[in-house]
Every structure is written in C-alpha cells, then in structure tokens.
Amino acid sequence: MSENTAPTREVGGVPLPAAGVWKVDAGHTEVGFVGRHFMLTKVRGRFTSVDATVEVGERPEDSKVTAVIEMKSVDSGDQTRDDHLRSADFFDVEKYPKATFTSTSVAWQGTAGTMTGDLTIKDVTRPVTLKVDYLGYARDPWDNDRAVFSASGKVNREDWGLTWNMALEAGGILVSKEIELSLDLETIRQV
C-alpha cells in the first residue's frame, strides 16, 4: 500500500490510525455509565444506539469526534429501572430523544490523551473531559480497517437537570450524583 492508503502511520514513534474519517461500528461499541444505588452498589447501564464519527487529524490534537445517542436505547438490565430512566424524572425521551457530543479540543501524547467536548442532554450543554486511549488496529475478514479506542470520565448528572433522587432515612441519597462514563469504540475507516 502507498503511504496515503495505509490504515496506520507512525506519529512520534508510535503507531496511530491514519488521518481521515473513521465511523463507529455500533455493534462493537459500548457507551456505558456507572452510578451508585444507596451510595454503595454500582449500577451499570449503556446506550445501545449510538451514531458517531471520529475524524483523525494529521496532527492527533486536530482530531474531532461527533456522536448522537438515542436516549430510549438505555439498557441497565432492569426493565423497571430503564422505564424510569426514560421518564421525565430522568432523560424524558419523549421530549428529548437524542443526546449529542461534539469535541472541542484534544491534547495527545503517544497513544493516549484527553478530549474535551460539549455534551448535550435534555437541551442542556455542558463541557465534559474524557481520558482517551488508542488500543490498536485490526483488519477484519471483510477487508475493513478498524481502529479501537477507549475513553472514560466522570460527570455530575445534575449539571444536565437529571436531579431526581430520594433522601435515605439513615442519611445520604438513593442515586449518586456522580456518574462514571466508560466508552469502548470500534471504528471502521471510511474510503
């Protein structure tokens, strides 16, 4: 392959994906979150419908990400909890069916960095910073070039108006305000 068509390249001595557009493969991607119930138990959830694009820049710090999340696709493994998350108490998916993320800046060194972007939930936009790692490249059996990334961060859900809660008799609250975000993104290079 010529240098222009190679799916990876070396930047600063480390292999990174080639500059260009890489589309998220929703079937091999997880946009997850973890909250605490009774301030003790970790409760995990994920969104199963995500459309996202990674534009890898010639310089890694020029890279951009855009994502649209279908909020009704929330799945925490419990139908009653999922219905509550979809209700007006939380995501209000009838009124606000989508959440979006648009990156605004990237700092990068080697195979890791940070990405800051605007996360919009329920028409409220707040900045979020994620730690990002490039995990590697693979060519699948159908000749698609794939680049894999992971990202993580923490947010206060109340910053987006997700304020429903219950006080506990012994003190504390039922649902944590701090939510951990965990993303595993498998992308396919677009030609």
Rank of each mutant, 00 (worst) to 15 (best):
T102E: 15
G35L: 05
L168C: 06
G171T: 07
E180W: 08
T114P: 00
D62L: 06
S105E: 15
K122M: 01
K72Y: 03
R81W: 14
K64D: 10
Y134K: 08
D78I: 14
T104D: 11
M166K: 15
D118C: 03
D140F: 11
A99E: 01
L85D: 12
T53R: 09
W108Q: 01
R139I: 00
D75N: 15
D78F: 12
G113T: 06
K64Y: 05
D78Y: 09
S63E: 09
N144F: 05
K98E: 15
G113M: 00
T187G: 08
T120M: 07
T120P: 04
F91T: 02
V21D: 00
A6E: 12
Q190M: 05
S2A: 14
L85H: 08
D92R: 08
G161I: 10
D159Q: 12
G27M: 01
D123G: 06
T120H: 04
T80K: 14
D143Q: 11
K64T: 15
V50C: 06
V43F: 02
R59H: 10
L168P: 07
A67K: 08
K23L: 09
Y137D: 14
V74F: 09
S152W: 04
A6R: 13
S182Q: 13
Y137P: 01
W108F: 09
K64M: 12
I173Y: 14
D78M: 12
L185K: 03
N144V: 02
T53C: 00
A26P: 14
